[in-house]
Design a protein around this nucleic acid. Structure first.
Lengths: 342, 342
DNA sequence: CTTAGCACTCTTATAAGGAGAGTGCTAAGG
DNA sequence: CCTTAGCACTCTCCTTATAAGAGTGCTAAG
C-alpha cells in the first residue's frame, strides 16, 4: 500500500482535485485547481504537477483534453494522509446522543434499524448496521417459556450479540414442571457450546440418551435443534438506498446496486471486514472484495450497545465526502462506547 | 371500476397486446397481434379494434405511428377478466412445500426472510414479506430471564405475530426470586393489554404503587416500558431488488426505487393494504397510494406460519407476468394455510 | 523551475438526411 | 355493414456533418 511519496505541492493539488471532483462530479481542470486552491501558481505549472500525479497513478483523464479525476489509489492516499475527520456540530452531537440513549433497552432488530437510520440521516448516504456473525457465539443460557395453547417460546442467550427466539408449537399438553425440566436438560447440554455447534450437539446428546426421549419432549428437542441450526436469517439492516440514486454516477446505471442490496450475506461480509474496535476503516472502490462494489466506497466502524457488538458502515460512491463520513462514523463509535461504559 | 364492456374480439386482442407487450417490452403493432393471436383477421381490422380499445382507455400509443401498449386500466381489465392464474409444476410444488415446512419452527426474522426469499426465487421478481402491524396485538405473557452479570432478558409474547425480546442491563445484583416476582408483577399489569397501550399502562400502574418501586425494580420496570414503547422496528423483509433492475423500464431510471426500498413503512403499508385472507390482490400502477410506485404493480396475499399471520407480495413493473405471479402468490397462501391446519 | 502562448484533440450540441415501422384513411369486395 | 388491400403520412431512430468549447501538451522565453 505504501511506496507513494508526494511533495507538499503534489499533495495540495491532489487534495484540490479530489475535493473539486467530490463537489462537482466533473473532471477537474488545471485552471479550476488554481481557482479553488490557494496556491499562487499558473495553470501550466499545475498541469505539470498533475502529469506527475497521473504517472504515479493517483489521478487520470477520462479522455484526452479533459480534466482529471481521482483513481482509487488517489482516494487511498487522500484518506491515509490528507483527510482530517470533520467534527460534528454541537447540535448534531446532542441529537445523536439523545437518540442513541433511547436504543439501549431495545431488541436487536430495533438497534440495527435505529443505528442505520441515524447514520443514514446524518450522512445522507446509505448506511448499514450488522450484528456480530452468529456462529462463534457461546451459548450462556437457554430458556423455555410456556405461552399457552401448546406453544412454547425458546430463548437462547449468548455471551455477546443478539439473543435468538422462536415459538415452538408442540402436540399435546404439558405441565409446567416438564417444561422447566426440558430447559434444565438443554442448559446442561448447550451451555458453553457455540451456536454453530449447537445443532450437532443436540443430535449427539439425544442419541446418547437412554431411553431416547420421545413424544412431547422429543418433538420439543427437535424443534430447538432446527431453530438453532445454522443459516438463520442474517442480522443486518440498512437504510438510505435512496441516497445512492441521487448521485449522478448511479442515476443512469444502478444495476450493480441491486446485487448489493439483495445479497445480505455479501453486504454483511463487506461491512464486517477486518475492522478493529475504535478504528474507522475505509474501503475504496476496487479494494472491495465484492465486484459489484468496485465503484463504491465503504466507511465502517464498530458499535457496542445493549450487549451487542457489531459493525456499522456508510456506503456511497467512491466520490464521497470522506472527512465528514469518517468523522461521523468515528463519533458514533465513540459515543456508543461511552454509553456502554456508564 | 366497472363500466368497461368488451366484445369477445376486443378481449382477445387486448389480451394479445398485453401479453405481447409483457413478453417483448415493445409497443405491439397490429401485424404482431395477427401473428401471435390465432384470430384470422387482417391487420387492418385489428387496427380498427385497437382504435376502439384506445378510445376506451385500455391501450395507448406512445407516439403516432407506433404500436400500442396497455394502460393501467387495460391491465386492470385483463387481471379482472382475462387472467387465469397459472398452475405450478409438480417440481416447484414439491420444492416449495419442503422449504416452507422448514420455516415452521423458526423465529420471525427467519420466517420473513425465508418467505421473501422463496417467493422472489420463484417469481424472479422482488418479493416482500411483512409481519402483522404490532400495535393491536394483545400481550399474553411477559417473561424475564436472568442471563447473568446484571443482564436480564425480557420476552413479550402476544396472541399472534412476533414476540419481542430485549436484553436489559441493570445496576447491582438481584436474586432469582426477585426476578420472578418482577415478572409476576408485569404479567399482572400487562396481560390482555395491547402492545400500543403497554407503555402507558406501566407508567400508570407504576404511579399507583405505594410505596413506589425504586432502585433495582424501578430501573427494570422502566427498561421494560421503554422497550415496549411504540415505534419499534418495522417487521418487514424483502429480497430480489436485483430483479427490478433487470427490467428495461427501470434499468435507466430507477430513482423511484430508492424511495420504495427505503421507506419500510410505506412498503409495509403498500403490501398490507386491504387483502383478505385467501384472496390475492393486485394493485396496478397508479392505483398504488404510494406515488413512487405508479409504474409498478403489486401482487399480494396472506401467509400464516408458526403463529404469525402476515402479508407477502411481489413487486415489479406493471408489465409483469400476472398469470404466473397470481398463481404463485395464491399457491403460497394455500400451502401455508394447509401447513397450519395440520 | 515557472509561465505565456498556441496548436491539437476530444467531447458535446445541433442540424440534416435517409431508412424503417406502423398507423389512418379511402375505396373496393364479400 | 363488416372486412380488407393499398397507399400516403408521420414519427422514431440511426448516421453523418459541422461548429463550438474546453482543456491539455508542448515549446520557448523569462
Amino acid at each position: 500500500m505504501h511506496g507513494v511519496e508526494l511533495t507538499d505541492r503534489e499533495s495540495t493539488i491532489l487534495q484540490s482535485v479530489i475535493e473539486g471532483y467530490v463537489k462537482e462530479a466533473k473532471p477537474v481542470s488545471s485552471s479550476a485547481v488554481v481557482r479553488m486552491s490557494s496556491v499562487s501558481l499558473s495553470s501550466a505549472t499545475v498541469r505539470n504537477v498533475m502529469r506527475a500525479l497521473e504517472e504515479k497513478g493517483l489521478i487520470l483523464q477520462p479522455h484526452t483534453s479533459a480534466g482529471r479525476i481521482p483513481t482509487d489509489l488517489g482516494y487511498r492516499y487522500y484518506v491515509d494522509n490528507l483527510v482530517k475527520p470533520a467534527g460534528l456540530t454541537p447540535g448534531e452531537r446532542k441529537a445523536i446522543g439523545n437518540e442513541l440513549a433511547k436504543l439501549v433497552h431495545c431488541d436487536l432488530a430495533t438497534v440495527l434499524a435505529g443505528i442505520s437510520h441515524m447514520v443514514s440521516e446524518a450522512s445522507r448516504e446509505m448506511a448499514v448496521a450488522v450484528a456480530p456473525s452468529g456462529g462463534g457465539q457461546v451459548i450462556e443460557q437457554v430458556a423455555l417459556v410456556a405461552i399457552g395453547a401448546g406453544r412454547i417460546m425458546a430463548v437462547v442467550a449468548t455471551d455477546v450479540g443478539p439473543t435468538r427466539t422462536a415459538v415452538l408449537t408442540t402436540d399435546g399438553t404439558f405441565h409446567r414442571t416438564e417444561v422447566s425440566k426440558a430447559a434444565d436438560l438443554l442448559n446442561e447440554w448447550l451451555r458453553g457450546v457455540t451456536l454453530s455447534e449447537a445443532s450437532a450437539t443436540i443430535l449427539k446428546r439425544f442419541a446418547e440418551q437412554d431411553p431416547a426421549p420421545d413424544g412431547w419432549l422429543g418433538g420439543l428437542l427437535d424443534g430447538v435443534r432446527v431453530f438453532l441450526s445454522p443459516g438463520g436469517s442474517e442480522r443486518i439492516h440498512y437504510e438510505g438506498a435512496r441516497y445512492i440514486f441521487r448521485h449522478p454516477e448511479f442515476s443512469t446505471d444502478a444495476s450493480s446496486l441491486g446485487e448489493i442490496l439483495d445479497s445480505e450475506e455479501t453486504l454483511a461480509d463487506v461491512v464486517r471486514g477486518p475492522v478493529r474496535a475504535a478504528e474507522v476503516r475505509v474501503v475504496i472502490g476496487a479494494e472491495n472484495v465484492c465486484s459489484g462494489m468496485n465503484r463504491m466506497s465503504l466507511v465502517a466502524g464498530t458499535y457496542r450497545i445493549g450487549g451487542v457488538v457489531g459493525r456499522m458502515g456508510v456506503i456511497g460512491p467512491t466520490r464521497m465526502k470522506y472527512p465528514r463520513l469518517i468523522g461521523l462514523v468515528g463519533y458514533f463509535s465513540k459515543v456508543l462506547d461511552d454509553l456502554l461504559a456508564e
